[in-house]
Computed example of a mutant assay.
Amino acid sequence: MTATNKPDGDLARLHERLAHDAETRALIDVAYRTIDSPVGPLLVAASRHGLVRVAYQSEGFDGVLQTMADRISPRVLHAPARLDGAARELDEYFSGRRTSFDLPLDFALTRGFRAEVQRLLPTIAYGDTASYAELARAAGRPRAFRAVGSACATNPLPVVVPCHRVLRADGTLGGYVGGVEAKRTLLDLEASS
């Protein structure tokens, strides 16, 4: 490794070859990579079923990887090629050229009512917002607005599954897994398109 923590040329080529061989032999259950974005570095991960995780650096990438190893499979590997489509769509989104994602999604990291709410989030149109109470009503549980907040806070696919579009009833931002500034950045990006 060099001082920048990136593998030198030979090591990088070896890692790329090993990742390619593991991918073609179906030895990777979860592939991941990091991408740069206007809201900071994002870790994106995909299972064979689809995008399974988008994580902000503030969540701790090592902890996110460990959670996926514990809850999905220990066969987690930095194999960026599987995430090329996700990286492309996120880049298009951040540059204002994409208003919705066409990626297959894997909700393996969520269950129950949280999963129901997270599947509803993409129905909030690009550039629009909804309140926690409105989302609770849409989920058929009008008094469960706090549970909706919990579902948004634990969304394993922020940005792609747009929990940033959910606001408090008074129109204020509320919390966000990536921080309030990231939420404001995403909402401003969508408002300006």
Rank of each mutant, 00 (worst) to 15 (best):
D84G: 10
D84Y: 02
D84S: 15
D84T: 12
G85C: 02
G85W: 04
G85N: 13
A86N: 01
A87F: 05
R88A: 05
R88N: 07
E89D: 06
L90I: 06
L90W: 03
D91F: 08
D91K: 13
E92M: 11
E92Q: 14
E92Y: 03
E92V: 01
Y93F: 13
Y93S: 00
F94S: 02
S95P: 01
S95T: 09
S95V: 00
G96I: 02
R97D: 02
R97K: 12
R97W: 01
R97N: 09
R98A: 14
R98W: 06
R98Y: 03
R98H: 05
T99R: 11
T99M: 00
S100F: 08
S100K: 10
S100A: 13
S100I: 04
S100H: 11
F101R: 01
F101N: 00
F101I: 00
D102R: 11
L103D: 07
P104M: 13
P104I: 11
L105D: 07
L105S: 10
D106H: 05
D106S: 10
F107A: 13
F107K: 11
A108G: 14
T110R: 12
T110A: 14
T110W: 09
R111F: 10
G112I: 11
G112E: 07
G112D: 14
G112T: 08
F113P: 04
F113S: 07
R114D: 15
R114Q: 15
A115F: 06
A115P: 10
A115Y: 03
E116D: 14
E116W: 09
V117T: 03
V117N: 06
V117K: 01
V117R: 09
Q118N: 15
Q118K: 08
Q118R: 05
R119P: 03
R119H: 11
R119G: 06
L120N: 14
L120Q: 11
L121K: 10
P122F: 09
P122A: 10
P122I: 02
P122Q: 02
T123V: 10
T123R: 15
I124M: 06
I124W: 05
A125G: 12
A125P: 02
Y126P: 00
Y126T: 04
Y126K: 04
G127H: 02
G127V: 01
D128C: 06
T129I: 06
T129H: 12
T129R: 11
A130G: 05
A130T: 02
A130W: 04
S131R: 05
Y132S: 01
A133S: 15
E134A: 13
E134C: 08
L135N: 02
L135H: 03
A136V: 10
R137M: 04
R137V: 13
R137G: 00
A138Y: 09
A138W: 10
A138R: 15
A139H: 08
A139P: 08
G140W: 12
G140Y: 07
G140S: 11
R141V: 06
R141H: 09
R141D: 09
P142I: 05
